[in-house]
């Protein structure tokens, strides 16, 4: 393969030219932007703690979703195990761990759905009830929507794995997707702390 010699400097030819993978950089950028969105929503949540003029208050209606959180956070571990297996070309364990990740994510989503159902129909808290309702559903809902998008991506990969389309050379792309999942999990730690610990 040829190159245009724009006065090449001798030393340039001795080092191999290595650049970062664009998918990874792109995902880092996306995560940067998403973080900014979450920062604003978290700031709004913190700012409006205790500013509601009417009830119900977080103490009255919120229960700490410990099981849910454990499921979501452990899915970070399972997806990491899946990545490791893919790197070592072990497709079966990869598919297994990957599927487990999806199941854990689904449990989290269902848990959130049940929590919302209880809040709306039993405890009478909706978006328009008071400031707490507005900020709570916005922040948790924003996170849940990210979980949904992540699950869609993960499921697609699982389908392709089961049909045998995923190979070792796709490891880099799959790691990018896993990066997004790690981000979603990390955000949950922040949301959890703010909503269920500080705000309660």
């Amino acid at each position: 393969m040829s190159a245009i010699p724009l006065t090449p400097h001798v030393s340039d030819h001795q080092h191999p030219w290595h650049l970062p993978y664009r998918g990874r950089i792109g995902m880092y950028c996306l995560i940067l932007g998403e973080s900014a969105i979450f920062i604003i929503f978290v700031l709004a949540y913190v700012f409006y703690i205790g500013k509601s003029l009417t009830g119900p208050t977080p103490q009255q209606v919120l229960e700490v979703p410990i099981f849910n959180s454990i499921c979501l956070l452990s899915s970070s571990v399972t997806i990491w195990l899946a990545e490791r297996n893919l790197e070592h070309r072990k497709m079966k364990p990869f598919a297994l761990w990957w599927a487990l990740t999806i199941v854990l994510g689904l449990i989290f989503l269902v848990g959130t759905g049940m929590e919302w159902h209880t809040l709306i129909y039993e405890k009478g808290l909706t978006v328009s009830t008071n400031l707490f309702g507005t900020t709570f559903y916005s922040l948790v809902g924003l996170h849940a929507s990210h979980v949904i998008f992540g699950l869609i991506g993960l499921s697609l990969v699982l389908i392709f794995t089961l049909t045998g389309h995923v190979k070792e050379e796709h490891a880099e792309r799959i790691q990018v997707l896993a990066l997004y999942w790690h981000f979603v999990d990390a955000i949950w730690i922040v949301v959890f702390t703010v909503v269920y610990i500080i705000g309660r």
Partner: peptide, 16 residues
């Protein structure tokens, strides 16, 4: 959705 982020009647903040 009838939220109150910037609804000053319900404790929301215009400054936010």
């Amino acid at each position: 959705l009838g939220g109150h982020f910037f609804d000053t009647q319900a404790g929301g903040s215009a400054v936010a």
